[in-house]
Simulated scan of single mutants.
Amino acid sequence: MLLEFEPHESMPALRRGDADVIITTTDFVGHPLDPAIDLMPLGSDEVVLVLPPGHQLTAHDAVPLAACADQRWIFDVDRSYMSDLSTRLCREAGFEPAVIGRFNNYMVALQHVEGGGSITLLPSLAVDPRYRVVTRPLSPPVTRRITAAVRRPASPRPEITAVLTALRAAR
């Protein structure tokens, strides 16, 4: 069975035994990792600024987040990984973002940006090329680490070994 959790929900689910393998980001602020969990790095993914076509900030090769202080923002739902990350990055850049909408679906967020109503921050892997949006890296760049995590087993389980082997091969 496949389940979708927020990163802050997936580690507890793994520890409880509700999941055997999770693919998550380990970019937690204030959340220590459990020493009984084995991590396997899978890659990294850049967090990008997503803009409507023709937006003034598309003229930049990379955008300092402070340049976005006066923009209208779309964020993921409250207390989600991307919402918390976006809020934290905006505050570190010196402003409180004007969030005009929250969606738990990246496709809906991309539609809103495409229509010119807002800008957003998304993982680059989430930007579907079917949407007419422009992405720009942040300056300084922001990346998230994608990691597979499993509980350290008392004895090896062939099905988990098979999943980890497939993930290693796909890196």
Rank of each mutant, 00 (worst) to 15 (best):
E4K: 15
E4T: 11
M107W: 01
A98L: 14
S124I: 00
L138S: 12
V63E: 07
V133L: 05
N104M: 05
Q71G: 10
L57K: 09
A109I: 07
E46G: 15
V163Y: 08
G116K: 03
M82S: 06
R136W: 15
R132W: 02
L42C: 13
R91P: 09
T58H: 03
F103R: 03
T161F: 03
Y81K: 03
A162I: 01
E96W: 00
F103C: 02
Q56A: 12
I37S: 08
F95Y: 07
C90S: 13
V29S: 01
I74R: 13
F95W: 12
S155G: 08
S118Q: 02
L65K: 13
D20E: 15
R168H: 15
V133I: 10
E96C: 01
P137Y: 06
P141L: 05
D27C: 09
V134Y: 02
D84Y: 03
R151L: 08
P156H: 02
A19I: 02
P41Y: 13
L164D: 04
M40W: 10
L2K: 03
A166C: 14
L51F: 12
I22G: 12
P123T: 13
A126G: 04
V142W: 10
A36D: 12
G43L: 11
D78I: 07
P7V: 14
D76E: 13
A13G: 04
A170R: 14
M40V: 15
V108R: 10
A13F: 04
F103G: 01
V47M: 07
S83F: 13
S155W: 09
I23R: 00
P35G: 14
P53S: 02
L42W: 11
P53V: 02
L42Y: 14
L49R: 00
R171D: 02
M11S: 05
A98R: 08
G54Y: 15
A162N: 02
V108S: 15
V63D: 12
V50W: 03
H112S: 12
A93L: 01
L57V: 03
R136P: 06
G94Q: 06
I100Y: 13
I100Q: 10
L65R: 04
P53G: 01
S44P: 04
R16Q: 11
H31A: 05
Y106I: 02
G43R: 06
R130M: 05
P7K: 06
H8R: 04
A93E: 02
T24Q: 03
T165D: 10
C68E: 06
T161A: 13
P97T: 08
V163R: 07
P52M: 04
A62Q: 09
E114H: 10
P7Q: 13
R132L: 05
E92H: 08
F103E: 05
S124R: 13
E6G: 07
Y106C: 01
E96I: 01
G43H: 14
S44K: 07
V21F: 01
S118P: 00
R16A: 12
M40N: 09
A36H: 06
I22Y: 11
G101Q: 15
V99I: 15
D84S: 07
E46M: 12
D20K: 05
P41T: 11
A170G: 08
P123D: 12
G17A: 08
I37E: 09
E46Y: 14
E4G: 05
P156T: 07
A154F: 13
A154M: 13
L42I: 12
S44Y: 09
P156A: 06
I119P: 06
S155R: 07
L110A: 06
D128I: 00
E114S: 14
H55A: 00
F28P: 01
P141A: 07
A109M: 10
